[in-house]
Structures are given as structure tokens and as C-alpha cells.
């Protein structure tokens, strides 16, 4: 999606976007109770999505955050299982949107390539996803994939902290300085109690 179109879409999606300040483009997943938090394992069946829908969203997730470059992607994180849990719980109001969108992708893949979306080639999948990139379905499905990759593992995704590994984020309950390269350098030059520029 071109930058301008993406921004326009995002800003026009008033029904589920905040806007303004820090939550400039925060999607709407509010008014929701606690999620089912039993971590799933890779071979667990989906509970909200059908097996076919599960295959489709796994394929979708893999094109959002692909695998195979030595870094974990959405598949390694189990993002589809997060989505399955969320759509049966706190994000249940998006369930029809997502299952409808996945069925649409399957229909498009069948029409164009005579296969289900999950069985199309990565290039074909990318092309089909570009066709629906400006839809609410794509926006929310991407949200599920991203959240499923980076949310706390208690929500069913981010297995083995795969998402944190992708981001180069150290996962620990507490940290000590130095935190990063620049503060370490700052303390080396100015001392640990340097009080700003004054």
C-alpha cells in the first residue's frame, strides 16, 4: 500500500483507531475481558478457527513476518495460535471479519491458481494479499499476527520469546545500566553522576 493511502486508511478508520497523541494509530481492541491464556503448542488443534482457516492464517502470518532467514518469524512464534485464542475471546467481535477475509483469500487463490490460499506459492500469496491490503480485514489480521508474535507468551503466541529474539530484545524481569551503547559512552565520558549539560 502506498504510504499516503496507508495513512489515509488508518486515519479514516475512526471506528477502531484512537488518533492524536501517543496512540496515533492504535487499533481498537478494547472493551475486552481477559484472554484465554493457556499457551498452545505447535500441534494443538485450533479451537476457534477451522483447520482450513488455521492453515490460511498460518500462511497469511508467514507472509507478514516470513521465516527462513535465520531469524524467527510469525510461524516460529505461533502467531496463528494467538489469533485463534484471541478470536475466541477478547477479539471475538473480529471473528467474522477474519474468517470472511480468509475465505475471500481462498476464493481468490482458487480462481487464480486453482489452489487454496495456503497452497499457493509465496509469490502468489503476496500478490493476493496486495489485492486486499487496504481492507479492514487485512489491518486486523496483520494486528493479530504482529500481536501474536510480540505479545507476552501467556497469550498463546511469541513461543520461546521468538518475537523478542526477532527484535533483539533481551527478555528479563529487571535490567542494570548500561542499557545501550550511547549511555555507556556517556557515562564513560561524563561519569556516572553527570547531571546534564548544565
Amino acid at each position: 500500500m502506498p504510504e499516503s493511502t496507508r495513512r489515509e486508511f488508518v486515519s479514516s478508520s475512526a471506528a477502531f483507531l484512537g488518533g492524536g497523541w501517543l496512540w496515533l494509530q492504535l487499533p481498537a481492541v478494547a472493551t475486552l475481558s481477559a484472554c484465554a491464556r493457556d499457551a498452545a503448542t505447535r500441534n494443538d488443534p485450533f479451537t476457534t478457527l477451522s483447520a482450513a482457516e488455521g492453515r490460511a492464517i498460518r500462511a497469511f502470518a508467514t507472509r507478514i513476518l516470513p521465516s527462513g532467514d535465520g531469524l524467527p518469524g510469525a510461524e516460529e512464534a505461533g502467531a496463528a495460535w494467538f489469533a485463534d485464542g484471541a478470536l475466541g475471546g477478547p477479539m471475538a467481535h473480529f471473528r467474522d471479519l477474519i474468517t470472511g477475509g480468509l475465505a475471500d483469500l481462498d476464493a481468490r487463490a482458487t480462481a487464480a491458481h486453482s489452489v487454496a490460499f495456503a497452497d499457493a506459492s509465496p509469490e502468489q500469496q503476496d500478490a493476493l494479499m496486495h489485492e486486499v491490503e487496504d481492507s479492514e480485514f487485512f489491518f486486523i489480521a496483520r494486528l493479530l499476527v504482529v500481536a501474536g508474535t510480540f505479545a507476552d507468551p501467556s497469550h498463546g503466541g511469541n513461543r520461546d520469546h521468538a518475537g523478542f529474539t526477532l527484535l533483539q530484545m533481551e527478555h528479563a524481569p529487571a535490567f542494570h545500566p548500561p542499557f545501550g551503547w550511547y549511555d555507556e559512552e556517556h557515562v564513560r565520558v561524563h561519569g556516572p553522576t553527570a547531571g546534564g549539560t548544565a
Binding site: 496507508r6 494509530q25 500481536a147 518475537g163 523478542f164 527484535l167
Partner: peptide, 28 residues
């Protein structure tokens, strides 16, 4: 991490796909 994955990259970067992933890896 979630918020950054959703909205953290500059608007001229892709928002999904291999390059999106690489940018997240670098930018976060």
C-alpha cells in the same frame, strides 16, 4: 514490542513482508 511492530517504523517503510521484518530487527 507490539506497538512498535504495528506502528513503530517510519511511514516510508513496508508494513509487512521480508523487508518489514528486517527493519523491525534493526529499528526496535
Amino acid at each position: 514490542p507490539i506497538m512498535f511492530g504495528l506502528f513503530g517504523l517510519p511511514p516510508d517503510e513496508p508494513w509487512w513482508g521480508q523487508q518489514y521484518k528486517e527493519r523491525l530487527h534493526e529499528y526496535f
